[in-house]
Design a protein around this nucleic acid. Structure first.
Length: 876
RNA sequence: GGGCGCGUAGCUCAGUGGGAGAGCAUCCGCUUCACACGCGGGGGGUCGUUGGUUCAAUCCCAACCGUGCCCACCA
């Protein structure tokens, strides 16, 4: 009684996806409010940069979040995916500065206020592009709850955290060695510095003794820092230099005397075992300098040029100065040798420029007291990593944590809520008014200037899971949705971001920010290379959508998500396969919806006693698929879920069941079973392929308005017919498996006999049920001749199938049987040898022995039949 | 230097202590009334190497080789 719907022959994703996304968004299905009556399932979207464009990494991690949210929503949970964007301080500022440059304007000439106005404009114009791309990918976050790190409420959270940490003594101002990015003109946190091996040179330079002696030869890769040298260090137990400790040597060229000191941080086995100490430009040297109370001059300034005490090199770029100084040392006869050397160069992950360690007055956050509770929470299992091993990355990072430089010299970001008096007294307050009030009270005046620095962009990111829920206000969202259930991220930011969220979440929101951290694999190309513009191997997910559709793009990516693998070597063919799969399902739907007998109004099964064995088989497979996909989603095993979906949809449903229903005896029940199984199946498919699943679901008998809010197939409700592992469903399913195996055997024989697809394969068979005969006849294109004499005396399908004999030219049969006999003889020999081994029969598990024995018996029976057949045929 | 992953068919990858799997590619046959974006059939692998544990190892253990990633202050 269902209306016949004329469906297009080929599935067209472009049309369907645009239409169904608009429908979902208009219906508000992605929006949720906190509902304490239902268990929460909340994911905070890792905020993409406003300068970002969707790449394959987004496509994989964000698809994962969309899949999880859709899955848990269908399970009836209070599921919400909270979207937002990051202002991306340095990255955005660099983009704006570059844009200004084309107009011939510099940042400083424009001034702070005008620059920020320009940045906000830029954000308004381009910031939404990645969201448009997310919509094309079918992502359904709760758009009504979109947040931006620089929203007033989130900025308030940032200031509150800064103020409280300051009051607790965990944020302080001090002069420390920091990472300076000369291109970005800003400091960087340790986590934003990457080290890169580069071919360089190590120079051996003589530092003569102040008293005229030969002194000591020092190896250095950075001769341009010599003007800031304050000592030469050797290992205290290094016999070679013991006599020199406490004496002075002269800096080459500069001829300034510096002491020779002893420090166990020096490795006596490296180079000459003597290390020049430049506390102003090297971390190890800085630590040695602190230990020995050495002065800390600077040779390089914030423009990466030589400064002040660098004599005639002042104003020279650091790399030009390097060459100049080496040349002068050589001219002075103090260059002992220059060797090729591979050194590790610190690189800014922001600009790619070589980072310069510099002494600077900055703001820092003391991490140790924050890291301890995070470690304890992790060890207590309050936050769980998937795969587990990434927890060790997390813990290792926290154990070795150092103070965090949080101030940046860019303008785009959260300006430090810090004011100074003319005497450099510090006032920290939430607002300027409060700062003034404090100053009046404390100093009797309001003469304040605000710190011009902004906070590290990761400072606001660290608060993300609770700042977007309204913190510091108490809100229903905070009450029910914090902690989140899951965080999905990449391993490269476990320490940079995840660890900080855990630390600050524990400190300010009273709990870890999420229970599970799913670490998605990184995406590489087929050769295992990182995707990069310079290699030209970048794959644009939007391009994939145009070629294959969003469903197929997602499905293809998810198929490649393997839990234990650290890398995903992206194979575009998987998306093409998925596109074909969508078309396959679409055509199955056309078949089902245009059955002459029509479909039932609702998605229900016919009376169970009327089901055929094929019906019971596909329903049993459906039951197993529900279990597999559910377990896979719960375990973040998306590749397994996809494998299972593909196998059911294509191999089981289309190739086997749908074909089986074409036999006359299948027609009484098929419409209802086909529709029911397909309806259930597309609900399993929906989290990964939201569009085609919905389009099919709408074409079938269904309950409700949209599959987005349909229920996840529940074994105790939707599949309540299932009567257990020893029930009739499994028994009949096993029988149908036997039929399938027989059909395969017959098809194989057909090909071997060289039968044209239209020719019948002749079979001599014992009496059997009509449905069984029909299956053999239609699926193997056979002609079954019933021979009562071959009767097995019961309806045991296994026995009947075994008694079937093929009719074909004697020579062909003889060849086939002979080959089969050879194989069987070998198998029997192998099995018998195994069974004759007393070690095996006594030590192996009884069921294994029994299985082996049964296998042997079966082979022997088969061999007997084959031998009989060959006897009848006569030996060739 | 420390930690972690991977090595199974030409390619990308599943998989299991008890007779090696999928998709793509390749070969053969088919326009069969849902689908040629399809259907049916085939070929192709000493499961990186060498040892060990076991009645039994592709699977567990060790070493090695190859490969990739993360962390680290070797000038």
């Amino acid at each position: 009684m269902t209306d016949r719907i004329e469906l297009a022959k080929n599935y067209d994703p472009a049309d369907v996806e645009r239409r169904l996304y608009a429908r979902s968004e208009a219906a508000g299905v992605f929006h949720e409010d906190p509902d304490p009556a239902r268990p929460p399932f909340v994911i905070s979207m890792p905020p993409p940069n406003i300068t970002g464009r969707a790449h394959l990494g987004h496509a994989s991690t964000y698809s994962t979040m969309d899949v999880l949210t859709r899955y848990h929503r269908m399970r009836g949970e209070n599921a919400d995916w909270l979207p937002g964007q990051d202002h991306a301080a340095i990255a955005t500022e660099a983009v704006i500065v570059r844009e200004l440059k084309t107009d011939g304007i510099t940042r400083d000439s424009l001034g702070r206020e005008a620059f920020l106005a320009r940045a906000w404009e830029w954000r308004a114009r381009y910031g939404g592009i990645i969201y448009d791309q997310f919509r094309l990918l079918g992502f359904g976050p709760d758009w009504e709850r979109d947040r931006f790190t620089m929203d007033p409420a989130l900025s308030h959270a940032v200031n509150t955290v800064f103020l409280r940490l300051y009051e607790e003594g965990l944020i302080y101002r001090g002069t420390r060695l920091i990472n300076w990015d000369p291109s970005a003109k800003s400091t960087l946190s340790d986590a934003e510095v990457e080290s890169e091996p580069r071919e360089g040179t190590i120079w051996y330079v003589r530092y003569r003794s102040a008293d005229g002696g030969p002194g000591i030869v020092v190896a250095t890769t950075r001769p341009e820092t010599i003007p800031a040298d304050v000592a030469v260090a050797v290992h205290p137990e290094d016999e070679r230099y013991r006599a020199l400790i406490g004496t002075h040597v002269l800096l080459p060229i500069f001829d300034r005397p510096v002491p020779v000191i002893a420090d166990s941080a020096v490795d006596p086995s490296f180079a000459t075992g003597a290390l020049k100490i430049t506390p102003g430009h090297d971390i190890v040297d800085y630590e040695i300098g602190v230990r020995h109370g050495l002065p800390m001059p600077s040779a390089i300034d914030f423009d990466a040029k030589l400064c002040a005490d660098a004599g005639r090199y002042v104003g020279m770029d650091r790399f030009i100065a390097r060459a100049a100084i080496v040349a002068d040392i050589d001219a002075a006869g103090l260059l002992v040798k220059a060797d090729a050397h591979q050194n590790t160069v610190p690189i800014s992950s922001r600009s790619g420029d070589v980072v310069e360690p510099l002494l600077s007055l900055q703001w820092f956050c003391t991490m140790q007291p924050l890291a301890q509770p995070a470690l304890e929470a992790y060890r207590a299992g309050r936050v769980r990593f998937v795969p587990e091993r990434f927890g060790r990355t997390f813990a290792a990072g926290l154990e070795g944590i150092r103070d965090w430089n949080v101030s940046r010299q860019v303008w785009w970001g959260h300006q430090l809520p810090v004011w100074y008096t003319p005497n450099d007294d510090i006032v920290v307050a939430l607002t300027e008014e409060e700062a003034r009030a404090i100053a009046r009270e404390r100093f009797g005046h309001e003469d304040l200037r605000r710190d011009t620095d902004t906070l590290d962009t990761w400072f606001s990111s660290a608060l993300w899971p609770f700042s977007i829920l309204g913190w510091p206000e108490e809100t229903p969202e905070r009450a029910h949705w914090y902690p989140n259930q899951t965080l999905v991220t990449g391993r490269e930011i476990i320490f940079l971001w995840v660890a900080r969220m855990v630390m600050l979440g524990l400190h300010f929101a009273g709990d870890v920010p999420f229970r599970d951290v799913f670490v998605a694999p990184l995406v590489f190309d087929l050769q295992g290379r990182k995707m990069s513009k310079s290699l030209g191997n970048v794959i644009d997910p939007i391009g994939l959508i145009e070629k294959y559709g969003a469903d197929a793009t997602r499905f293809g990516i998810m198929k490649q998500m393997r839990l234990e693998s650290q890398e995903l070597r992206f194979d575009e063919q998987k998306c093409d396969e998925a596109r074909k799969f969508a078309n396959k399902l679409w055509n199955a739907t056309r078949f089902v919806t245009s059955l002459p007998e029509g479909l039932p109004r609702a998605s229900t099964l016919p009376p169970l006693e009327t089901l055929t064995i094929a019906d019971r088989w596909i329903l049993t497979q459906l039951y197993r698929t529900v279990a597999t996909v559910t377990d896979a989603f719960d375990a973040y095993e998306f590749g397994i879920a996809v494998d299972s979906l593909l196998a059911f949809g294509w191999n089981l449903y289309c190739d086997r069941y749908l074909e089986a229903t074409k036999a006359p005896s299948a027609k009484a029940t098929r419409a209802a079973v086909l529709a029911y199984a397909l309806n259930t199946f597309v609900r399993l498919l929906h989290p990964i392929a939201p569009f085609v699943s919905e389009e099919i679901w709408l074409a079938l008998p269904h309950d409700g308005e949209t599959i987005v809010t349909a229920s996840w197939p529940d074994p105790f409700q939707d599949l309540a017919w299932y009567d257990g592992p020893n029930g009739r469903f499994e028994r009949d399913a096993a029988d149908f498996e036997r039929v399938i195996a027989k059909i395969d055997e017959l098809r194989n024989a057909r090909a071997e006999f060289g039968l044209h697809p239209k020719d019948k394969l002749e079979l001599l068979a014992p009496p059997m049920r009509d449905d069984l005969r029909e299956q053999l006849e239609s699926q193997a294109n056979a002609l079954v001749t019933i021979d009562a004499a071959r009767g097995t005396g019961d309806d045991d399908i296994a026995a009947i199938l075994k008694a079937i004999e093929m009719h074909a030219p004697a020579a062909v049969l003889r060849e086939r049987y002979t080959r089969e006999r050879t194989k069987l003889v070998a198998e029997i020999a192998r099995g018998e040898a195994k069974l004759a081994n007393a070690e095996f029969t006594s030590r192996a598990k009884p069921e294994v022995v029994e299985k082996e024995r049964a296998k042997c018996d079966d082979y022997r029976a088969q061999l007997a039949r084959v031998t009989d057949a060959l006897t009848v045929l006569g030996d060739a």
